[in-house]
Design a protein around this nucleic acid. Structure first.
Length: 355
DNA sequence: AATCCGGGGAC
DNA sequence: GTCCCAGGATT
């Protein structure tokens, strides 16, 4: 990327227009009620790859349940995951709690206000570090997210592929040069708010843009073609037989997922990799893996669930327990107790087939 | 540098 | 269907 991007750029004029627009037009959001570093932190984690409107109710409930670092640090991880249920990227919740526990044990419960300590906490990367330092502590640190890259690639007419890590990193020194020393919080949030409300991915509202006069892409009529971003590859399909496995009339069998990887530590109905398997082979696979003898019965429906890099194709079957070992990975619970466990959305959809 | 990690909403 | 969202961790 060229290093003379800002040579003939009116940084002060850009700052003034952006901050004035932000102050006049910013949305009333729950995490903007004050600058409590804990609230800023939680909101920034929830907002990773997640829209504002999705986050709002989760943030409200999370703050009622875990109002400060001590309440979150001492909580049961399953309760934290339950509060995160449906929000996705569940490692965010587990990393957040792990980092909060470190803040309690190593920093006397006070969230660090320097980038060295903050950046070492689990789940806090370059963006979140800069967001907390600028918003909660008024430090002129860059916070480069997707909005900021889109806005600045247009304003400065940057044509590098923003999907590349090295290109992303190059936005940080640029923001460091552009950021307001007087109000870094409003500057960073202003860039993001502008990206969300005006400088949108498609059909940006340039006629209402407070920094239109500074925008090189608008000058060239190029705003619709920026930023440049290579496409992600398509997710792979994986087929499963998913079981509504009953034990008697009231009990249903569920299973806790592994500690690592996809949907870690969430609960699910038992799933059998079904590629090339007959129903009978699925029963045998299940007995070999769990030691439970089962009988698969009626086909109850099918579900397709799309992840970022994966597609689950679930064939849902009712099934009955013929024999259960005394000790098992599987758990037998009353149907009315299912709501106490954190389930991924795909398996919440499965619950509709229960009767 | 590439891959993994959710879910939803706008179009 | 496509895109992408206040990204980070792992390999």
């Amino acid at each position: 990327m060229k290093d003379d991007l800002l040579n003939h750029f009116n940084i002060q004029g850009f700052q003034e227009n952006l901050i004035a627009w932000y102050q006049a037009n910013k949305r009333n959001l729950p995490w903007r009620e004050n600058q409590d570093p804990y609230r800023v932190w939680v909101s920034e984690i929830m907002l990773q790859q997640t829209k504002v409107d999705t986050v709002i109710p989760y943030f409200q409930r999370f703050m009622e349940k875990f109002p400060d670092v001590y309440r979150l640090a001492s909580a049961d991880e399953q309760d934290v995951l339950k509060a995160w249920e449906g929000l996705g990227y569940y490692s965010r919740a587990r990393n957040l709690q792990s980092a909060v526990r470190e803040v309690v044990s190593e920093y006397d419960g006070k969230i660090p206000d320097n980038k060295e300590a903050l950046g070492k906490l689990k789940g806090i990367g370059p963006y979140t570090k800069g967001a907390i330092l600028s918003i909660a502590f008024q430090q002129p640190e860059p916070a480069v997210d997707g909005n900021v890259m889109r806005v600045l690639s247009r304003v400065l007419h940057i044509t590098d592929n923003i999907a590349e890590a090295k290109v992303k990193k190059q936005f940080e020194p640029i923001v460091t040069k552009m950021i307001s020393k007087e109000d870094p919080s409003s500057f960073n949030q202003g860039l993001m708010e502008l990206g969300a409300m005006v400088c949108t991915p498609k059909s940006p509202l340039c006629l209402f843009c407070p920094v239109q006069e500074y925008c090189r892409a608008f000058l060239k009529g190029d705003q619709e073609n920026l930023p440049i971003k290579s496409k992600a590859k398509k997710p792979k399909k994986v087929a499963y037989i998913a079981l509504l496995l009953k034990q008697g009339k009231e009990k249903i069998i569920i299973e806790k997922r592994k500690e690592q990887g996809l949907l870690a530590n969430l609960w699910q109905f038992p799933m059998i990799p079904s590629k090339g398997k007959t129903v009978h082979e699925a029963e045998e696979w299940f007995e070999a893996k769990y030691g439970w003898a089962i009988q698969i019965g009626k086909h109850a429906g099918k579900l397709k669930h799309v992840f970022t890099h994966l597609i689950w194709e679930l064939e849902i079957y009712e099934a009955d327990v013929l024999y259960a070992p005394k000790k098992s990975k599987l758990k037998s619970v009353n149907i009315h107790e299912l709501s106490q466990y954190p389930f991924p959305v795909s398996h919440q959809k499965m619950m509709k087939y229960l009767h």
